[in-house]
Amino acid sequence: MLQVSIYRYNPEQDSQPYMQDIQVDTGGKDLMVLDVLEMIKSQDTTVTYRRSCREGVCGSDGLNMNGKNGLACITPLSETVKNNKLVIRPLPGLPVIRDLIVDMTMFYTQYEKVQPYLQNDTPAPAIERLQSPEDRAKLDGLYECILCACCSTACPSFWWNPERFIGPSGLLQAYRFLADTRDTATTERLAQLDDPFSVFRCHGIQNCVNVCPKGLNPTRAIGHIRNMLLSRAT
């Protein structure tokens, strides 16, 4: 029997959150954490969490499992359970709506701030804009972000300044457009980032790299942004 401890909070009933201990019979199988949650919910329908694709591409079920952020659907028990114990908490640093569901508004707002869409002021050709495989390769490791917020909510700088520091996820996306040879708004984009908070609150702690379920490296992207700012500065 796996000992599962889940963070519970229903604002309509609970004055404060608490941890609920539940025993789960996994049948000795190396299930994913999401499977365990589904088993629990089939018995107690009040347990609340987000989930969608269950294969690690939609980014719904970012959770804190035994102290580490990750996606419940692609985290096998063998990877996270220690001493037969699994502690599941919501992503840290964001307001909790109910149980494992956090209010991601601040996270999305930071994403929107970097204007995450291609800007090109030249008229579009009749076919696609050409881009060499080498230039396209610059987007690898950037465009794959699934906005699960595992990185930003593992980042102390984001915990303290979620309104002002864009956070690893948003900055990864900022660089995705800075790196795109089809984008012509580089100067404007950089001008938006050159303040003491947006980019420079990153202290290179690298929690983001450590937890990213897609194996991406926001710290490196932030370094690239800094270098771009530096090389353009006078």
Binding site: N120, A126, R129, L130, Q131, P133, R136, L139, F177, D180
Partner: peptide, 19 residues
């Protein structure tokens, strides 16, 4: 499809730079 590319969809590319 070309509209999507113009919107920024990061298609893989051929040596000629096409989709």
């Amino acid at each position: 499809v070309f509209e999507l590319e113009h919107m920024g969809l990061p298609f893989s590319r051929t040596e000629e730079g096409r989709i």
